[in-house]
Design a protein around this nucleic acid. Sequence first.
DNA 1: TATATTTGCAAGTAAATACTTGCATAATAT
DNA 2: ATATTATGCAAGTATTTACTTGCAAATATA
Lengths: 114, 114
Amino acid sequence: MEARRDVFQAIADPTRRQIIDMVARESLNLNTIAEQFTMSRQAISLHIKILTECGLVTIRQEGRERICAAKLDKLNEISEWVAQYRKHFEAKFDSLERYLTKLQKDKKNAAKRK
Amino acid sequence: MEARRDVFQAIADPTRRQIIDMVARESLNLNTIAEQFTMSRQAISLHIKILTECGLVTIRQEGRERICAAKLDKLNEISEWVAQYRKHFEAKFDSLERYLTKLQKDKKNAAKRK
DNA sequence: TATATTTGCAAGTAAATACTTGCATAATAT
DNA sequence: ATATTATGCAAGTATTTACTTGCAAATATA
């Protein structure tokens, strides 16, 4: 159980995405996270290990507890990768683009009225 | 070799990301894609099958050839999932945000000068 | 028609993945 | 001090993944 360990792979697993979701809201210790799942604590521990190894989660020891916190900077890799294909799925980006266009139009209009 | 077949899993594999990259630029037939890799045609064929199964690639038969085209709408699932954690990796979004802020400031200034 | 090309299907393999259970250890709480 | 809690580590298993090689079928080309 070793090998590739990149962000793309890390978020491929639904359990790991759920874990990310949990710790993104609030830092939690390992057992609290594990309790939310039906699978064993060990399994969750391993998922968290994977998440820390690729830098999406950080752990700080606090007494006997290990507090897991989200550190999702690396998700940039994902969004940047996706962004390059923007033209292939413009539809959903429309709202943002419309917003930008509107802002620029407003700016122009404001300038005109000046 | 069956099971989960979602976009997150599809893009987890670097070979598949490469394939996406190739067909996003230009639709290509299966063999042409396979030739770019050292691994066997069958392996590539399977990767492409996975990509079509989750809707990221479409195939049209043309004589004996199968032309693979990118259809990356589903990447939205990814970008939407990532977007919800935006606050966790603001840094890189900074440029866009700065841009938006600047636009709004310009707009305000323009209005003031009016 | 004989031959090339483009591909699918099937069977088989090696490695990785996603788990499990059992046991050990350190920190806290009683 | 003893029990409880939070965790790690190790070994083992089932399933999935990522491939391979070999063969068959359909289309195009000489």
